[in-house]
């Protein structure tokens, strides 16, 4: 291991999967084994162009390759979307904390996610699946702008829904001709009776505004703030608590997060901005 924390390890993009018009999954094989926990993030470098933080969408059990699902949103992600198989990349990390899955044992897990927020949730979901009997059940409420905008369509719509101990509901903001499911934001498919709130943890991921309304809704259901886990997005640069870019109050999102309970950060006014 390099003693230089800014030094990425080399890797290569071996496959690219189109998830939606603006979202692709990149399958990356690093030159060294790469271990992470669901919820931790990595810094992905496109050599010579730039670096950006992402939470992998693949299972942490696979240490040979990492999948990162990326929405075209800015300069670096735009360039990544133009990449072809064989592109060399750099990876630093993993950074921050993952979800404390061991603390979830015996409980209902209530996953609420929207848009590209489904990407890190897949990593969490796959981790939970490996030991699904440890939990009461895994209840997912997932949203996308249109049916076409759903990522991981193949698995999400079919096979995952058939797994024992898993219950999934989907919603879209705007339906198309084939859609016979719910229409509306993700909170419209959340119901107080979905889980036993006194014995449940919630895992929320998505755009800030979506996380805000989901959090408020769940608090309304009677969830305790310390049982609501949020994956916070900030413009991380160093990933190691030095560069100052990712602060939420006294916390460095890169080191103390990106996973926080609402209890930890609710006192800070600008968490949703």
């Amino acid at each position: 291991m390099s003693q230089n924390p800014y030094q990425p390890i080399n890797g290569e993009i071996v496959d690219i999967i189109d998830e939606s018009q603006t979202i692709k999954t990149f399958v990356i094989v690093p030159e060294e084994k790469f271990k992470f926990e669901a919820g931790q993030f990595v810094e992905l470098t496109l050599p010579g162009e730039g670096e950006a933080p992402f939470t992998p969408s693949s299972s942490p059990a696979d240490t040979e390759k990492i999948e990162i699902t990326i929405m075209k949103a800015g300069r670096v992600t735009g360039l990544l979307h133009q990449c072809k198989k064989g592109q060399k990349v750099g990876i630093r990390g993993p950074y921050g904390n993952g979800y404390p899955i061991d603390d979830f044992v015996g409980k209902y897990i209530y996953i609420v996610a929207g848009g590209v927020g489904l990407a890190p949730m897949r990593s969490v979901f796959l981790t939970l699946l490996d030991r699904i009997n440890d939990f009461k059940s895994v209840v997912c409420r997932l949203g996308a702008r249109t049916p076409d905008n759903f990522i991981f369509k193949n698995t999400l719509f079919w096979s995952w829904q058939k797994i024992d101990g898993v219950e999934i509901k989907l919603t879209v903001d705007k339906a198309d001709a084939d859609w016979d499911g719910n229409v509306g934001v993700v909170t419209t498919i959340c119901d107080k009776k979905d889980v036993d709130v006194k014995n449940a943890v919630a895992v929320i991921c998505g755009p800030p505004i979506g996380m805000k309304y989901a959090t408020l809704k769940l608090l309304g259901f009677g969830f305790d703030a310390e049982n609501i886990y949020l994956s916070m997005e900030k413009n991380m640069s160093c990933g190691i608590g030095k560069c100052g870019h990712c602060m939420i109050g006294k916390y460095y999102v890169c080191k103390d997060g990106p996973v926080f309970t609402y209890e930890q950060i609710k006192q800070y006014p600008d968490i949703w901005d």
């Binding site: 990425p8 050599p47 010579g48 560069c243």
Partner: peptide, 24 residues
């Protein structure tokens, strides 16, 4: 004050990641 950011550049025969002072 110690905020900085990292940025990437192309050199003649290698790629470089630079660390530069930033300002809030």
């Amino acid at each position: 004050c110690h905020c900085f950011y990292l940025y990437d550049t192309k050199q003649k025969d290698y790629f470089a990641k630079m660390k530069m002072w930033d300002s809030c």
